[in-house]
Design a protein around this nucleic acid. Sequence first.
DNA 1: TTCCAGGTAGTCG
DNA 2: CGACTACCTGGA
Length: 328
Amino acid sequence: MKTELEINSAEFKGSLNLPLTLHSGQTSQPAWREDDNFFQELVFIKGNPCLLEVSHQPNTNLPVRVRVTSSDSIPDEEIKVKVSEIFDLNFDLNSFYKFLKDDPLLAPTIDFCRGLRLFKAHDPFECIISSISSANCSIIRWTRSINDIKQKWGVRYHYSSGNFHSFPAPEILANVPEHDLEEMQRCEEELPKDFVFENNLQACGVGYRAKYIITAAEMIQNQVNLEKLAKMKYNEAYQTVLELPGVGPKVADCILLYGFGRGEAFPVDVWIKRIIEHLYFPGEDLKPQEVRDFGRERFEDYAGYVQLYLFHYARKSGLLDSLRPAKK
DNA sequence: TTCCAGGTAGTCG
DNA sequence: CGACTACCTGGA
């Protein structure tokens, strides 16, 4: 069953640049597939698996085009809610730009980032595992890992435009082998000498994070309730996700920002630290915690967006390169 | 080939 | 508490 609908630009405040939003390396999920200007992903709308396809001419008043393929009929309104959530269409980008213009250090980011929005996870659990996998790791590497995990343990759905895999549920991921040895030990029968073990987490390129991922999945299955987490006050939610293995301050803020849409998060990686020091504390060396406190106090509910805009601006303007330490 | 980037966990003082 | 380092992999 196919549904097509449009979201008129008058239905959300401010501009939208969909390709930029999808490709800005936000750690909620890998970038979506792209086919004929439509971005595609398997998402669940009120529990219904469907292929969601979204297209939009960046920074124009043309409507956002949405196509949904599903076995059950899904009301237009539910589709709109899901799309608006994923691309944060309810966020008032115009007000945010006013806020940016009030700070001469932030104002230049607008021209580089127009239409950039939060790319919110369509699956919070996937976002948690993505964020853990992204720690101390390049974008290409963690996106490959997440795609591998989906292929190996997700459920496969077939559409005319190809196969898509869901992200495995916590109870699935909690029980996968950690590495080659464990996969081998679980095997009943004799294997050929040249057998390649690939149905284990380390084979997905997650390295030492494999055990973090398995334990985190166990904890989410058994003790950490994601629905409750979404309703907690920020600091309580932050302390809760910090208990997951592989989750430190940066990853915790990423999870709350991208997985749960908590705009008051201010994830501090080495780049944001350098950018903030350069702009607001020239010549000083701050601790990551101090950068985080500064960002959260100064930018408040816009902290997450400021982080997003500063990073993309720094990358595109050449600031990032100038902040890279000189090679020895 | 070696070296390095990139957050977290563990260890030591 | 703070400071220091090992961790795994892909790319230079």
